[in-house]
Design a binder for these strands. Structure first.
Length: 574
RNA sequence: UGCCGGGUCGUCCAACGGCAGGACAGCGGCCUUUGGAGCCGUUUAUCGUGGUUCGAAUCCACGCCCGGCAGCCA
């Protein structure tokens, strides 16, 4: 609705991280003619999450800072695991995060012919051979982390024979697993990745993009470096687990005829407390129905965050704040939430919503009177204007804003106590009406001071508490979904013996409030619109919303000093 | 235990060999028509032992601890 348009902050990460420093040096030396081209290369076998957002912001951010380019490349070299569904989702998510690959959308499968030609070149140079060892035998021959491997009996096949065999592999004359093309490097190499790694394997599977054209597919180590080089990538940024693969990356490019040799640089992947960023475990959460799909607002997936009400700007600010390094680190999820609140505070329109309604009757307010107050939309942004908010004799306030016997320090409504209704009047509690049988509070009777109209009085007397409210007859019904951390433990994987991360699931991660009352201006709210429910937090309209029923998701709570005081009080014997 | 990488406040990130700084969290206060926001203040750290040096988080040596690697996954 009236959400402030905040331009994406273009400031580079501050101070420059080790990758940017290195790139700066390269540019200064005029390496690659001073050009910077990066790439984001997801495998389309899952949905993107906040960890990918770190890589996306890094790669696209650097390209933007150097007026270079960042390619989006789908790394689709394994037809058994990849699906078009994921490809579409990845494109959508990257764009939503605020990045544009221009014309540079590629697929590793675009290069299948080139890969094949380069494999033949290695064969002809005597640097690759077809190996008929079984997978088990290959493992045995590879040796272990501490003992060297030994040469395959097929290692000395002449180039001509290898070439013919490889061609037969391509034509589908072999069964899966029967043989494989291997780089001929060194079976005693201390780096296991260099012990004649497989570079092509047989998979009689149709590929989402190339169909039945191929039944042999290149391995990551062979395809990735060549893809980078074919696209003239200057800096190939990847996560730490590929550090051991860099020698192989370089070996392949050094041994084929290709003019470009990108520099691989590794950085630590993102880890966050109170959530999971493993593809496998995310998939498990979805498949076991622990969450409601890939866009469940409790998930750290980009779609989940989007549905939760996160902004791409907040995610970008978070990525800049955490920096990039090689140390394995675990970021407190509070840091993410901080950047979210900071962004939403500037841009989200304020609105009044009562989550747990308690009826209040203003006994001295004329029965059929109604008036309208003008409420500022966002005190942080005067340009956001105001909206009308109707007031009437019967209102709802928050149940927790009234206490019959208030504890020390409680500023809200209590018998005989005067508080301010935001934007409206001062009211004083005169009576508490209870259900005779249950003792449950049914409604509160108050008087109002007509002289306090607008929220202050001529005598200048002060009230400690200011409550939000909605007029009963004008209020809209809404369902509100209160989300909190999916896991109770900071590290869900640190589970008691015999249990897994599921033992850390937070049973309160979703609490649905079906009968909330919200102010009438929300009638025109659209799915995705973000608001601050005053004194509660940030909420956004869920796509489940229908014309008949508004549904809101809680994006984040506001800082709640009172709740914190209460919590602390409980911990200590007074 | 072969190879690779990494150890700076509770957390994350800084610091040409020259006063260890910032952010988040915490704590205290101010302010407030959101117990929000904002503002001010504040606690806390260089893995260890030697060495080089006028001077070491930074360089060297030896340890210690943590992570990654033995897919025809990426």
């Amino acid at each position: 609705m009236n959400e402030a348009k905040i331009p994406a902050p273009e400031a580079p990460a501050n101070p420059p991280d080790f990758i940017r420093k290195r790139i700066r040096e390269d540019v200064a030396k005029n390496k690659n003619h001073g050009r910077v081209i990066t790439r984001f290369p997801p495998e389309p076998n899952g949905y993107l999450h906040i960890g990918h957002a770190k890589a996306i912001n890094l790669n696209f951010g650097i390209a933007r800072e150097y007026q270079g380019a960042c390619h989006l490349r789908l790394d689709d070299t394994n037809p058994e695991k990849e699906e078009q569904e994921y490809i579409d989702a990845i494109r959508e998510d990257v764009r939503w995060l605020g990045f544009d690959w221009g014309g540079h959308l590629y697929h590793a499968s675009d290069y299948y012919d080139r890969f094949y030609t380069y494999a033949v070149e290695l064969i002809e140079k005597g640097l690759a051979y077809v190996c008929h060892l079984s997978p088990d035998a290959i493992r045995e021959y590879r040796g272990t982390l501490t003992t060297p491997g030994k040469n395959s009996p097929f290692r000395q096949r002449p180039a001509d024979e290898n070439r013919a065999l490889f061609e037969r592999m391509r034509r589908g004359e072999f069964k899966e697993g029967e043989c494989v093309l291997r780089a001929k490097i060194d079976m005693e190499h201390p780096n296991i990745n260099m012990r004649d790694p497989a570079i092509y394997r047989i998979k009689h599977a149709a590929h989402p993009r190339t169909g039945d054209k191929w039944c042999i597919y290149p391995m990551y180590d062979f395809a990735h470096c060549i893809s980078d080089a074919l696209e003239n990538i200057t800096h190939s940024l990847c996560t730490l687990e590929f550090e051991d693969h860099r020698p192989l990356y370089d070996w392949v490019l050094d041994n084929i005829t290709i003019p470009c040799h990108p520099q691989q640089i590794e950085f630590a992947r993102l880890e966050l407390t109170h959530t999971l960023l493993s593809k496998r475990k995310l998939l498990q959460l979805v498949q076991e129905g622990i969450v409601n799909g890939w866009d469940d607002p409790r998930l750290p997936t980009i779609r989940g965050l989007r549905r939760r009400g996160y902004t791409p700007e907040a995610i970008g600010a978070f990525c800049r704040a955490i920096g990039v390094d090689k140390t394995n680190s675990v970021i407190d999820i509070g840091t993410l939430e901080y950047h979210l609140r900071e962004d939403l505070n500037r841009r989200a329109q304020r609105v009044m919503a009562v989550l747990h309604p308690l009826k209040v009757v203003i006994v001295n307010y004329p029965d059929n009177q109604a008036e309208t107050f003008s409420a500022e939309n966002n005190p942080e942004d005067p340009a956001s204007g105001t909206r009308p908010v109707p007031f009437a004799k019967t209102l709802y306030i928050e149940q927790e804003d009234f206490q019959e016997s208030p504890p020390k320090g409680y500023f809200r409504l209590a018998p005989g106590r005067e508080v301010r209704l935001k934007h409206a009047y001062y009211i004083t509690c005169q009576a508490v009406i209870k259900d005779e049988a249950t003792g449950e509070i049914k409604e509160i009777h108050c008087t109002y001071d007509p002289g306090s109209r607008g929220g202050s009085t001529p005598d200048g007397r002060r009230v400690k508490g200011t409550l939000h409210w909605v007029a009963a007859e004008h209020a809209l019904d809404a369902e509100v979904r209160l989300y909190s951390h999916l896991f109770t433990r900071p590290d869900p994987n640190q589970a008691p013996a015999g249990q897994d991360f599921r033992s850390a699931l937070n049973p309160q991660s979703l609490v649905t409030l079906p009968a909330c009352k919200v102010e009438p201006s929300l009638r025109v709210a659209m799915a995705g619109d973000r608001f601050q429910f005053m004194r509660h937090g940030y909420f956004c309209v869920d796509p489940d919303t229908t014309p008949a029923r508004l549904v809101f998701n809680r994006t984040a709570t506001l800082r709640d000093t009172w709740a914190k005081m209460m919590q602390k009080g409980q911990g200590q014997p007074e």
